[in-house]
Write a protein that binds this DNA or RNA. Structure first.
Lengths: 595, 595
DNA sequence: TTATAATTTAATAGT
DNA sequence: ACTATTAAATTATT
């Protein structure tokens, strides 16, 4: 194959320390395999040394993959005259490519040459691929002396033992954050659990395993035995999520409440399922979180039968509670891998709370949640009843499962994280490209003054409100603006969502969307016999709706002060809400029967 | 335990970059556990940072094990005033020891102090154990100000978030040189080996590890994958020394010839073992090398059956060859850690060579070795037949092993690097304090003129001399001044030298000396049947002794032009030497049998 | 800025 | 699954 080639001469490259003549030669041959050799022809360098080598220490030989970047780096440091040869190309300008690991096997010659021409030469992979037609370059044959000629190792024992190239993938920040969270919840997950995590996080199971391993053992100062740490600080390294919930929840859903998280959410139900979310969109209002902090959370409180969206800014934390039973429609949509959106159509606006962010100190009662006015921008949340929550796919999917299980004894719905849904999806795009992105509640928080912080009063505490000793629901039953039923549940639109993402499971493109409740709202003719055990096993619980006056103080005791049923017999009459309330109990709650 | 202690003040330590006051304090207490804290009291260092940490990043606390070496290294890099405190000793001077992992838990205080006193401080483990009685030191209580006082961490959560300040120590030229060499020999040493290296080079194991790592992987040009380079240029990265010698050599001995080194020594035997030495003493003549260059080397050429001492000065390189078989006695003696002396008693003077130092250019034949007159001062080497070579302990010890293996099928002798033999040793002191230290051959190099550089003539080349196709030895057999045999081998004086140094093995103090050959020279009644395989496996090779005229040109072809046996039939009669020659062949070479 | 020391983190191997 | 180690990538320091 003393084939012709293509050449380009670069007079001056910007290699530091001296002007260096760079010469790039591309020769096309017959072989399909490409050979790349870069050679520094400096007299101070011995011929053998000057052959550029693969970073993985393999000699460059036909068919070999070459990390051009490393090679270039080498050359630039060599300050040597350089000859690059690409031989046995299928055809100039077309056949080389850089794979996703930045490794070159078949590099677009043009980019190579262009790189050389511009003298950039430092990084290679993302070179402009501008198709420069081969004619632009001269056919060329390296004019080096025979002995300096690269003896094209006859392909033969080219790296007889191809050292199983260690491809080092790096976890993204998000993935790491997720893993950290999950680790905190359970530092030694089972195989099955790992598989779930793998799906959720979006990387191979093996990688998850390795991560947990390394996290547990690494002598790193940070990790400093994440697991060991957990073992010491926390209890005995929660090998299982420790929530003794009677429900057989899907994994991530029943994530344990970390201590700090518990402090954060200050929910008195130890079985709340917190979901760290990335976006919350209500109409034009949009709150994003970059997952480095627990700044945007969602959880479901079974006891109170509500969703909560939690938002934290510098000085204050905010939350809004959406009654489970005000849910008209619930739609799940996959987004990028591991991510999804959950769209909720509710029939009544949420209730709003805020709480001062204070470091807890001994002797000082921690700030507690206070009811407040809608803190979203322009109080949009009071008008727009469509919430779009973006976050980790699996937990969000599990929310669907969970909600579904509240209505019917359905089999758990599995999640399918499809290939990136083209961003053409209206839901997503409308969501993503939505108006302003406010990283904090934009509405001036109402009622924030020092008087606002009343000492927690048992009598006013939500927790101490009677719950189930009276089966009378505590909600305001008047003025349901709409009625609905769940016959409207559009099963034809409720696709099974394959579990996992495309890396580890079957891919059923197109099944990335699911809706739980029909769009239409029918009359309340519930089918109590189809209620899930979830609702029957624990004593019927009640949702405390928007009954309190706007400035009512809600106090939740810490989780570990949880007061089981039956609570105090003392009960408080709900106030009337300024918002219309749905007759959600007529729909789902077996409580109805006991009325 | 505000116990009394023992103190020693060292006014000036030789930490590079500045004079540093070093203070060592030893306090004895009641606890059996020892606490060691080393603290740099530099205002530029925060208190927490200045607490020396275990290499594994653990804070030093009572009972903790501390890698003193690392600590010392750290301190020396800090260039800070240093307070060492050893508290809760069982008793001063007795209770600390370094375990086999080089970790200190109970260090012999005396050595610590002595080290401090002498300011050596670089290496710790093998410090002289000379029992210095505690009274020699004053009772002492650190007089530092309260706040700088080491708050003996109430074990508590001392630095909750001590930013693990990264202290960047830099390797000295010498260390780097050593490492480079060692790397060339073995680019991925085992842990044990690394520990040795660490000891030898004099910096913490961790640093060694890091260096190797960076050398192997870094895209640096020097490193530029030093390991990669090694892998490619050499065979497949000698994870083991690559010499296919039948002997099971200990590492450092079978160091590969680096390219430049090969050029330097211009030996045609690819299996020579070069040993970078620090001193060569022959009588009153003394040549030292500071190890930053390959200016003083020793090697053994199995093929020629000779030792060679190589000395390089600015314009010329010199060497002398000592016939292996003229060896009367060989003594090994440990010196400072990692260093040793080898004393050779030979029965006949070496032969001398010189070569001009020229950069090689293409087309120009490289300068070659030329026989010449004794170039030592006053030609002392021709009269004094006792050579003392100082250098790295292990290789030198291995020389002994090697030589031993030439004479008997003995198990390899391992080396013991004892605690510093007290510098009272006559051999060392006489050597170290010997007359003039000349950094270059002081004798005016003879025959240096332009005529001296004859073009290499095949017929005159030493390499092309017939070797084995005629089994007739080429040496001058006349006038052996002495006869000898190796029955004289004094086994009672041949101690087994434990391999490794005291850090990693049993310590048998006192076994730091060994002699191989008896001091007496007996008649030549060789026992050919006891010859080692080394001498039998490769075709019998011959030593080219001092046969040529003094101005004979010896030309060694480059290694890669190596001409295997049988060489050209053309043979050249040796000239008669001006020196008496031993009948070495009668002793060892099986060639004798074929006479 | 470069060179190189040191750390962090992913991955492998041995057990 | 745990341990130790390697290797890649990154950070930091001079």
């Amino acid at each position: 194959m003393e084939a012709e080639g293509v050449t380009l001469e670069v007079e001056e490259a910007d290699f530091e320390g001296g002007t260096t003549s760079v010469e790039a030669a591309v020769a096309s041959g017959v072989d399909a395999a490409a050979e790349l050799a870069i050679r520094a022809e400096d007299s101070t360098i011995t011929p053998t040394d000057s052959v550029v080598r693969h970073p993985a220490d393999q000699e460059v030989c036909p068919g070999a993959e070459v990390d051009l970047e490393a090679a270039i780096a080498l050359i630039s440091r060599e300050k040597a005259q350089v000859v690059m040869m690409i031989e046995n190309l299928n055809g100039p300008g077309t056949s080389l490519q850089i794979d996703d690991r930045g490794i070159l096997s078949f590099l677009p010659v043009t980019s190579l040459l262009q790189g050389a021409r511009t003298g950039v030469f430092k990084r290679f992979s993302p070179f402009p691929m501008a198709p420069i037609s081969p004619p632009e370059y001269q056919l060329y044959r390296t004019s080096s002396s025979p002995d300096t000629q690269l003896e094209k190792s006859p392909i033969s024992p080219s790296a007889p033992e191809a050292p199983p190239k260690r491809k080092r993938g790096r976890l993204t920040k998000e993935q790491l954050a997720q893993l950290e969270r999950l680790f905190a919840a359970d530092c030694s997950p089972t195989v099955a659990r790992r598989r779930e995590i793998s799906a959720q996080v979006g990387c191979p199971e093996r990688q998850i395993q390795v991560w947990y391993q390394n996290s547990a053992n690494s002598p790193s100062i940070f990790a400093c035995s994440r697991r060991a740490k957990a073992k010491n600080t926390g209890e005995k390294c929660k090998t299982r999520p420790r929530v003794p919930s009677p429900v057989k929840e899907p994994p991530e859903l029943c994530q344990a409440i970390q201590t700090d998280l518990a402090m954060l959410i200050q929910e008195d139900d130890s079985s709340v399922f917190t979901i760290p979310c990335t976006t919350l969109t209500i109409g034009g209002w949009n709150r994003v979180n970059f997952e480095d902090e627990n700044d945007l959370l969602a959880w479901i409180c079974e006891k109170k039968r509500c969703f909560t969206w939690f938002v934290r800014s510098d000085d204050y934390s905010f939350k809004m509670q959406v009654a489970l039973d005000s849910l008209k429609e619930l739609a799940f949509k996959n987004a990028e891998p591991g991510k999804a959106f959950l769209t909720l159509e509710i029939s009544s606006p949420p209730s709003f709370f805020l709480r001062r962010n204070l470091k807890r100190e001994f002797g000082v009662p921690p700030p507690c949640w206070r009811r407040c006015e809608d803190w979203t921008e322009n109080k949009v949340a009071s008008r727009n009843l469509r919430h779009v929550l973006g976050g980790p796919a699996l937990p969000l999917a599990n929310v669907v499962t969970y909600i579904k299980s509240l209505m019917e004894d359905a089999k758990p719905v599995s999640l399918h994280s499809v290939d990136y849904p083209a961003p053409t999806d209206t839901q997503i795009s409308s969501h993503q490209s939505s108006t302003s992105i406010s990283t904090t509640p934009t509405y001036p928080s109402p009622f924030i003054d020092d008087n606002f912080y009343l000492p927690p009063q048992e009598s006013r505490s939500w927790d101490s409100l009677p719950c189930s000793n009276s089966r009378t629901p505590m909600y305001d039953t008047k003025s349901p603006p709409q009625s609905y039923d769940h016959h409207g549940l559009n099963h034809s639109r409720t696709h099974a969502l394959p579990y996992g993402n495309r890396q580890y499971g079957d891919i059923h493109a197109g099944h990335d969307e699911m809706r739980l409740l029909g769009t239409d709202v029918g009359p309340v003719s519930a089918q109590p016999e189809r209620l899930s055990p979830l609702l029957q096993a624990p004593q019927p619980r009640q949702f405390y709706p928007e009954t309190a006056e706007v400035d009512t103080v809600a106090h939740f005791q810490p989780a570990n002060y949880y007061q089981p049923y039956p609570p105090t017999g003392h009960q408080q009459q709900p106030h009337s809400s300024s918002h219309p309330l749905p007759h959600f109990s007529e729909l789902f709650s077996p409580v109805r029967d006991s009325f």
